[in-house]
Amino acid sequence: MSNSTQVAARPSASSGAVRSRPRVESVARPADAQGQDQELILSARGLTKSYRKGNVELPVLRGVDLDVHPSAVTSIIGQSGSGKSTLLHLLGTLDAPDEGEIYFEQNRIDDLPNRSQDILRNRYFGMVFQFYHLLPELSMLENVLSPVMISHGVWGYWRRRKGFVERARHLLNLVGLSHRERHKPRELSGGELQRTAIARALISRPQILLADEPTGNLDRQTGLEVLEILRTLNEQENLTIVMVTHDQSIAREADRMVQLVEGRMEDI
């Protein structure tokens, strides 16, 4: 925990200026200029998604446009059931939109073959979930290493194992959990689990971190610690972060804030 405190304490002074003027803007407008598009790391155009329950179709997203700028923290807020998580799943290629397009570095990714989307999730996107989603059979260190285990075969992993383990330990140290690397998820608290999930999301050096209510299951103090870690990563490693939350006070800490209301982006 001492490491965690250090990590959390470090960025607070420097990031104060950034956080004092969050860029809140309505993004419910398409990027019509090509030059502007080229600056975006991730963008969505006209996304619609609905779920079917029996004969009833429940529209969740009704034409969402979103622009994510590199090295920025973008927060998506909205009430429960507004489609925030669905939007994040679509951006992370975990699900496919009914209509619309998603671009990552100007390349369309929503219509890629499954295998390419798997690679994209594994190497370019880091994902953090509200309920941590760590594998219970693996230790903290193994959980952090799991993305590189997935991307490398047995031989490839063992050949570069030393480097991977070193990085995993560095990340665990970064989130203040170096003393917990041999523990199993059931032996850790919620905050520790979420910090481990963040370390796991960073092991492959992703270009963008998609966080689905990362503090939603934590108490306020622990949530703030997690947010400090994310902010530090953003500032020190220029990590692009897209964060879904229903807590406006957390969302305001972001560089940009967008709001989803009944499946549509709205200005705040």
Partner: peptide, 15 residues
């Protein structure tokens, strides 16, 4: 749920 986690981390269906 573990299968979902693995897929979210990029594990292919074959894997």
């Amino acid at each position: 749920r573990d299968i979902g986690i693995l897929k979210s981390l990029g594990a292919p269906s074959v894997g």
